[in-house]
Design a protein around this nucleic acid. Sequence first.
DNA 1: ACCAAGCTTTAAGTTAATTGTAATGTAACA
DNA 2: TGTTACATTACAATTAACTTAAAGCTTGGT
Lengths: 226, 226
Amino acid sequence: MSQGRILLIEDETKIRRFIQLELEHEGYTVEEEQDGRSGLDKALSKNFDLIILDVMLPSLNGMEVLRRLRQNSQTPVIMLTARDEITDKVMGLDIGADDYMTKPFAIEELLARIRAALKHRRVDAPSLTAIQIGSLKLNRNRHQVTYGDEELELTKREFDLLEYLILNKGIVLTRDAILEKVWGYDFMGDTNIVDVYIRYLRGKIDDKYQVKLIHTVRGVGYQLKL
Amino acid sequence: MSQGRILLIEDETKIRRFIQLELEHEGYTVEEEQDGRSGLDKALSKNFDLIILDVMLPSLNGMEVLRRLRQNSQTPVIMLTARDEITDKVMGLDIGADDYMTKPFAIEELLARIRAALKHRRVDAPSLTAIQIGSLKLNRNRHQVTYGDEELELTKREFDLLEYLILNKGIVLTRDAILEKVWGYDFMGDTNIVDVYIRYLRGKIDDKYQVKLIHTVRGVGYQLKL
DNA sequence: ACCAAGCTTTAAGTTAATTGTAATGTAACA
DNA sequence: TGTTACATTACAATTAACTTAAAGCTTGGT
């Protein structure tokens, strides 16, 4: 399995090759771009876990790539700079780079910085199609929910609510958060609709299978846990 | 208002003074320690936004301080190293330092790295969702409190109060401050509600686990400390 | 266009837990 | 030893959540 997807934006061929080989040897999946503009395009068009970005680049310099990238993305960035000038370093960090390396550098150091940057990754589950808690499975593609091997009949709202709960299992969700994510309400004066749907889910899950998955956290909200 | 609370652990007096003055000039609140062991103690006893940690220290070296700190805290750490050896840098990053500087360095660069590290304070950073004192951990996302690995059942008020106490561990909090932050009362003529809830917490923590975390400071207020 | 069926929402009554008050007991300080 | 500050407890008031039923929507079929 890949350790992570890395985008390498570097114009000097020798350095690029070298880094690429080392990264792949460590188990990362690497894509490359040779100039700033195409690097930015690729960075915005796909999901990478990390971007390694040279400061000196044709067509659009690294600082500018970073600045524009940061308007739309929080992907961690490690900058590479040939110049040992403080101004560049300072700027890079202030714009939003997570780290930088001064060329020449030892590959071991780059690898350590990559590990450090990736460690910060949010654990937010990506777009998994099958999610579950205990014996309760929810398949997002098939729009199907099963407990053990029995299939549950859920309405769309019930399904959406359960999906949101499972995606955030273990953490407490406020009614407001649920209303916003599942119902799309920004704010609603007074409604107990969430409570009612929680009741419906409890009827179809907790009551029916005599488990306690849906927990009330009084004064706060609801939480799914085993 | 303070830009953030920084703990500076450095034994060389000249360097320490210099960094301290610069940081205070930038608006940070700075506390200092001169050796590894007392630095670690202070780091664990209070909440800092950032720790600057020298590698070469008396009594407990920086690497070891970092390693032990990481067992209980996610506070960002910037390491200072006199030696330009990669191994040290690599180790520091792998153990969990967020960044490092090689001495001598330009103060501007340190300031930029501090800004970068503090910017990382994400809303969902572990340091913000999980706080603790000793074996008592409070997770704000999960709305869960544990002592060792036992889970405590707290009501919302108890939880909010404990959260406020832990966030300000080591500091004496007046009843008025507690009322304002936890209850939202601006002023209340006469109530002993804080005392009552302190009692509830003591019943569930100090009494149950036979520790003394919640201390009364007669004439002033309450304080959480080990 | 109308109806039926199922889904969604509101609302009201009920139950349960938390919260705050107040009265009484205990320890600290002068 | 008197006085003040804090600790403790019981209970009543308050607030939050649960449950149910009925009203309001949608959707698909005729």
